[in-house]
């Protein structure tokens, strides 16, 4: 069985990103191929900001997601429209918007909602964390 995770809760206003991470860790430990991809939507896209600097005695959630994605080779998608409106800008998008900066963290990629639809249709279940 393969899952897609849809995360919509803000990393600062909810525990959606934390809970999803714990689910991922537990699921992948048992079944290393059970997660096909993770799609961040709404305020959850803020997880992909490479500039965020949490206090040193707190979890660095962005890094935690990067590490698990790297370890298990899992794609982390941010909805491009939701991300760009919140200032999460890839190098490509920064050129398109004629900006000098970009803020997208490594391991994350900007994709349209069509990618979520494709994930829905190619995995058994989709689980929303909000």
């Amino acid at each position: 069985m393969q899952y897609t995770l849809l995360i919509t809760g803000s990393p600062y206003q909810s525990k959606a990103c934390h809970t999803a991470l714990r689910f991922m860790q537990a699921a992948l430990k048992r079944y290393p191929d059970c997660i096909k991809g993770v799609f961040f939507y709404e305020d959850a896209v803020l997880i992909g900001n490479k500039l965020n600097q949490p206090p040193r005695d707190e979890i660095h959630l962005t890094k935690a997601w990067q590490n698990i994605a790297k370890k298990y080779d899992i794609s982390l998608y941010l909805c491009i429209a939701a991300a760009v409106r919140r200032g999460i800008i890839s190098e490509d998008e920064s050129r398109r918007y004629e900006l000098n900066q970009h803020s997208l963290a490594e391991q994350f990629q900007l994709e349209g909602l069509g990618t979520l639809v494709e994930l829905m249709n190619t995995t058994n279940k989709i689980i929303q964390f909000r």
Binding site: Y41, E42, D43, A81, A82, G112, L113, L116, V117, N121
Partner: peptide, 19 residues
């Protein structure tokens, strides 16, 4: 919040992809 709008956006995209 943007939740309502982003929920509707998802509905429209799903429909566009004939879901």
């Amino acid at each position: 919040s943007l939740s309502c709008k982003e929920g509707l956006d998802l509905a429209l995209v799903l429909a566009t992809f004939e879901q």
